[in-house]
């Protein structure tokens, strides 16, 4: 960042435009430091283990072929489900297995993430009140792929699904009232997607403004 300041001491118009264009790259601040150290930094991956406990095996058996992958990572049990016609039935199965509390539905955009099978992902975080266990059910989705809503099973899914639709643009079928929740109704686009960059104009209010104003005086 220091080199850049040296290069642009005066706020000329076209140069400022350049700074603006550079901004998204600059946003990840540690990058210049990363260039100095070896070109390919080693990526440490949290290890994936085979599910060992009985209830985990039982649940995988119950879900049958719809399970794409099941593993334990960082002490958390993950199941990757296929998005097919059994989707709702599988969740009903899971609920009957004791997971009666849906804590959270998180949507993820894997656009810049290495090793993800499809672009989007949904993570259902479930908890069982009786067994005191947690479970994460994951579903991967392509762009424009729709997913059935679990609102009939857990009413709490309402807000979570609306949020996933609002910020990530994932469409849930088989439910009513899927509309924007946090953003205004006339908003265009889905801001949590990775191809949406930072909003321009933010930098105007940072320290560069102090310099600009002083030079005007």
């Amino acid at each position: 960042m220091s080199e850049e300041l040296k290069n642009n001491p005066s706020p000329e118009k076209d140069k400022k435009e350049e700074v603006k264009a550079k901004k998204p790259v600059e946003g990840e601040k540690p990058k210049p430091a990363a260039k100095k150290v070896p070109p390919k930094p080693q990526i440490v991956v949290a290890p994936k283990e085979e599910p060992a406990e009985d209830w985990q095996k039982e649940l995988i058996k119950k879900l049958g072929d719809d399970v794409e992958e099941a593993y334990v990572s960082v002490g958390e049990f993950n199941i990757v489900l296929k998005n097919n016609e059994n989707f709702i039935a599988n969740f009903e199965n899971i609920k009957q297995h004791g997971f009666d509390y849906l804590a959270d539905i998180s949507s993820v955009d894997y656009l810049k993430f290495e090793g993800a099978p499809k672009r989007f992902g949904l993570s259902y975080h479930l908890y069982s009140m009786n067994m005191n266990r947690r479970l994460r059910v994951k579903v991967f989705l392509d762009e424009n792929e729709k997913v059935p809503s679990v609102m009939d099973i857990w009413k709490t899914a309402d807000f979570h699904e609306r949020e996933a639709y609002d910020l990530m643009g994932i469409v849930f079928t088989g439910r009513q009232g899927l509309k924007r929740i946090l953003l205004p109704d006339d908003w265009v686009g889905h801001p949590l997607r990775k191809d949406v960059d930072k909003v321009e104009g933010r930098e105007e209010y940072t320290a560069k403004l102090v310099r600009k104003l002083r030079e005007e005086d």
């Binding site: 540690p30 440490v44 804590a103 993820v108 810049k112």
Partner: peptide
């Protein structure tokens, strides 16, 4: 490390959960 984690604590209002995904590259 590259991976994902969900952790929840008992905040005064209820269950506060954070779902974090790290790609192992950035800070």
């Amino acid at each position: 490390p590259k991976g994902e984690v969900y952790h929840s604590i008992e905040a005064p209002k209820g269950e506060l959960g954070y779902y974090l995904i790290s790609d192992g590259k950035g800070t």
